[in-house]
């Protein structure tokens, strides 16, 4: 077994271990699966040049979910407003 192959095998094992640990964390905390798909931002200020956080929220017309990233590939004007 060459040195290169040995290093490759060790790296592969380490990766597998990491995946296993992450899977165990997810199994311990069922809510963690949701943590990947949302945020608990208490305040957000958009910054030019930075990605806008994605979100998934109910459409007021029919409660179907709309994600900001559904519009990837198009320019989006995001309008935060209230009817009051």
């Amino acid at each position: 077994m060459g040195k290169k192959h040995l290093v490759k095998t060790m790296l592969q094992n380490r990766t597998n271990t990491c995946i296993l640990i992450i899977s165990l964390i997810l199994a311990c905390d069922p809510g963690a699966a949701l943590a990947q798909t949302g945020s608990v931002a208490s305040s957000y200020k958009p910054v030019v040049g930075q990605p806008h956080p994605d979100f998934s929220l109910p459409n007021i017309q029919d409660s179907s979910r709309i994600k900001l990233s559904d519009y990837r590939g198009k320019k989006v004007l995001l309008l935060h407003f209230a009817s009051w």
Partner: peptide
Amino acid sequence: VPVAILIDEYGIVQ
């Protein structure tokens, strides 16, 4: 509100 944000086709705040 109101707040308007223009986001480009790559999901970046323009």
